[in-house]
């Protein structure tokens, strides 16, 4: 099959929003999720994205994996042509003994709009009076953000470091492309930080239903999407 796709809802939503940035472009993405322009959501720019999603629906037919790493395995074993996933998937390929740039490669923004959707997990520390505990908290924070930790961690995970001043030791071509995009400012906010989980949940339900049902038309799904954008918060 051309495209491997895990069946979990978040992966389908991720694919949809990758298409939104890559095919529709960052302006389209921001106009929808930041400006919540429902009229624009009914327009031709968004229609191309839904058309691309319909193509993806055909290309992922028979992709019965649930987890993203099982879907990645289908690519590694040569059963599938490619996968749309976050940069962390590189770790799976490396673990399987494949070398980036030789055995597999990355196509940032599907080769169209080479933008990165930046999202990160956060560490929160409770406010504590005890100076010993405060010092320990500082230590943890220092170790996490230490350049050496970042280099080792990103090398294993295959992702990009959270600091821009870190010099990566021989980054893979994939990481190199990512770093260049970051330095050129080709970054959009993650959809998670633009709309509420509630709105994202509605979008996810729509995408999941669309991808599972070949009779769900592009026009119909786009109209429902515009409805969600109109009530988004």
């Amino acid at each position: 099959m051309p495209l491997a796709q895990g069946q979990q809802a978040w992966q389908k939503q991720l694919m949809f929003n990758v298409l939104m940035v890559s095919i529709g472009g960052p302006e389209t993405f921001l106009r929808l999720y930041r400006d919540r322009d429902a009229e624009f959501a009914e327009g031709p720019e968004v229609a191309t994205v839904f058309q691309a999603l319909a193509d993806a629906r055909v290309m992922t037919e028979g992709s019965n994996a649930q987890e993203w790493n099982i879907a990645a395995r289908m690519v590694i074993e040569g059963q599938a042509g490619g996968q749309i996933m976050g940069d962390w998937v590189q770790g799976e390929f490396t673990q399987a003994g494949l070398a980036a740039g030789e055995d597999f490669t990355c196509l940032l923004g599907l080769g169209e709009h080479e933008y990165i959707a930046a999202a990160g997990d956060a560490f929160y520390f409770p406010l504590i009076e005890d100076p010993a505990v405060v010092e320990a908290q500082d230590n943890v924070a220092r170790v996490i953000l230490d350049p050496a930790t970042q280099v080792a961690f990103t090398a294993a995970k295959g992702a990009l470091p959270v600091r821009r001043d870190v010099e990566l030791q021989d980054p893979t071509p994939c990481m190199q492309a990512g770093i260049e995009a970051l330095q050129a400012g080709q970054v959009v906010d993650s959809v998670n930080s633009l709309v509420s989980p509630d709105t994202l949940g509605q979008i996810t339900d729509l995408v999941v239903e669309f991808l599972a049902d070949p009779d769900f038309s592009v026009e119909e799904s786009q109209a429902e999407f515009a409805q969600i954008i109109a009530t988004a918060d």
């Binding site: 069946q7 979990q8 809802a9 649930q66 339900d205 999941v208 599972a212």
Partner: peptide
Amino acid sequence: GGGPGLSSEVPAKFVFD
């Protein structure tokens, strides 16, 4: 997991999600 698509969703899962 409720799939494929939404075709095995149930109310209790709707509530949780």
